[in-house]
Amino acid sequence: MFELLGIPPQALFGQLLLGLINGSFYAILSLGLAVIFGLLNIINFTHGAQYMMGAFISWMLLNWLGIGYWPSLLLAPVVAGISGVIIERLFLQRLYHLDHLYGLLLTFGLALIIQGLFRNYFGSSGLPYQIPAELRGGQNLGFMFLPNYRAWVVVASLVVCLATWFVIEKTRLGAYLRAATENPTLTQAFGINVPLLITLTYGFGVGLAAFAGVLAAPIYSVNPNMGADLIIVVFAVVVIGGMGSILGAIVTGFGLGIIEGLTKVFYPEASATVIFIIMAIVLLVKPAGLFGRTA
């Protein structure tokens, strides 16, 4: 049997697949960030907390109201999205004319508050959430055992990412959005309600984060810090892909998941840093990111 870099090919395929699964989370989260940054010019540091809220809302739906995984896949993003709309109306809309830094600080502060509240109420060690019965078990692919749930995560995130891309790039609504990004004043002059568009976009971005949170609930520990651990990596993904680039966010999300997965085999100690090394290199060579446009 041949070996590639000292690793049997079976193991390598397995790790590639795992990288793809982790990449799914990066892709959905960085997509939400890219959509929000593209239209609102806000660097949404609350994103990690909103991802965490998605997981917690699905836990609450299950344990307090008896609503299972499948409905909460839709309900949790909606609830989180509404909270996003409230945040946008109350706070963010006052910051659009100011420097990026203000939005960043505000959303960062909000993230700390939200995490603190959840920690105070639920503690930090996390809550159990079972994999839905339909998706338990897995397939033996020969080179690895693929849990059904993980396969579902990849499919779900691919569908959501492509649908988002399609709506923004190929539909009339997306055209309005892009026009509002390009020139809000002119777009408003054509009778399009730009502030409403912005509010809903933020709500949608938050919903995406919460959707990722629901996907994560059965496999990762549902705890108040789950987003804080992830968000820094996701920001690196967005920077590598190019701030505000939809396609960039999706492609780099999956791509970096795979690179990280491979690092976990070849040099596990570096797997938490490899993305930042890539970020540094990309910023040196292509400051606008791989898919970004230079302003």
Binding site: Q15, L18, N22, R150, M226
Partner: peptide, 9 residues
């Protein structure tokens, strides 16, 4: 967060 890769090893 994700230990699946290590578990597979």
């Amino acid at each position: 967060t994700d230990f699946s890769s290590f578990l597979l090893q």
